[in-house]
Design a protein around this nucleic acid. Sequence first.
RNA 1: GCUCGUAUAGUGUAGUGGCCCAUCAUGAAGGACUCUCAUUCCUUCGACCCGGGUUCAAAUCCCGGUACGAGCACCA
Length: 505
Amino acid sequence: MAALQAILEEEAPHLLEKREKKERREGLPELKNAEKGKVVLRFAPNPNGPLSFGHARGIVINGNYAKEWDGELILRFDDTDTVVKPPLNEAYQQIPEEAEWLLGFKPHRIVIASEQMPHYYEHAVLMLERNFGYVCQCSGEAFKEFRVSKTECPCRNNDVARNLELWGKMNDGTFVPGDAVVRVKTAMDLKNPALRDWPALRIQNTAEHPHPRPSIRSKYRVWPLLDFQSAVEDQIQGVTHIIRGKDLMDSTRKQTLLYEHFGWTYPETMYWGRVKVHEWGGFSTSQMRRDIEAGMFTGWDDPRLPTLNALRNRGITSKALRDFWVELGVTQKDISVPLSTLFSHNTKSIDDEAPRLSFIREPVKVELKGEHSDSVSVEIHPNHPERGMRTFDLQSHHIWIEKEDSVKNEVRLKGFANIETSNSPTEELSALIGSVDRNDRRPIIHWLSESNATNATLIVAEDGELNRLEGLIESHSYPHGTMVQIERIGYARILDDTTLIFTHS
RNA sequence: GCUCGUAUAGUGUAGUGGCCCAUCAUGAAGGACUCUCAUUCCUUCGACCCGGGUUCAAAUCCCGGUACGAGCACCA
């Protein structure tokens, strides 16, 4: 093939196109039609719970593009449903904080849909007045018939005055939920049935299901659906690029039809596919909420849960999360990723900082026999001797080792000396000190001197279980929240004076 | 059922007609360093879903098949 090309170059060079040498792309794909400083992106969660691992993708990807193009990232609360997925008041505080933690910067604008209702009403009326929308009084089932049979619903022929009159009845309480919706006129023979005369606004019973925001409560009966609300809001905010899950592809098409009616230009759009994390499987905010309320989890930050809060609490850094999502990119493939991929990013982001500590699971006390020094010092971080040493006091001649290690007869105490344990069934375990120099290949184990050990609990979330391992931690003075590496076990985060949470190995 | 979308090593990912007997990361195996089963470094392994077509040339374009996913809600 290459040979053929060479011949062609000789004989008929005009047949070959000249091409630039391509470089491997770094990071996210190029944003189409983007202009430096003029890019506006948004991330629009429903505040019906705290952010989860999946939300992080939206924040990271949109945030990264905003940063890359000197643009803006809007954090928008799509809180227009009070019945099926009712918002949670705390989330309005928590989500911006979590987003900032994840991004490393504050979102440039925060928009709350429920506060933008006048805009949506204005556009709804405009839509009726210009006659590309109508009030439909068919039931859901009745309309479904029209949709599948590609026939127009009779309400479609209402004149403008009639539609405005019905609009009034939707708003004044004459109509109850189910009585009427506002639909956008499209061609009824569109190939994709999902798009045919799609619903834009509906009535909610906000007397029984008030909006949780005190300023909203039962103020409105008619609420926009996502496709309408989002479309209008994107236009108002001047959004230039929308990057979201491919489950919203049909939403884009609906919204494009609305944009055409209004004479607007739809933003550039990109999609990502579904991501499953092997260890978590499927999860939804609503399901988590039910499970927490049922007492299956300790709260939104239960380390078994895939919430951002839980991951953060457990010791996953925002950098690891960012690197993880950027690496996955914005392909439309549906993928399944093991948690170890995230952990590998996390190790990279914490190992160089994490001080080393000894933690003894199932401690066994050992009496040291023979000559040894009064204390032993080991490095706080083996790759950073300048950070100093930690010192174990040995004047009591007693140390702790893990039960699992105690059955081995010849081991080496890390940083100290070889020992030979002698196990008499009645007496406590004793060990004869051997060579201080390392002179053979015997296994190296971690240990703790009696006077440097503090009782501690290591919380381990594994296989859906939450286990509390009681043990001994090396005495230290690191502040709460510090990431440490517990030698031979893995990384952990210090929660308080006597508790650590296991991050990963 | 209708509609839309996706298919590259075990897992992710680069690649929009010749640079590709295919990139990078992760993983696995081996090794170096190391008084941690960590970190770092080195080596090796391993992939273009299938079948047609277009073309001098196809991972890349077209058609068909298969598989997987999503939408068809008065949820977001």
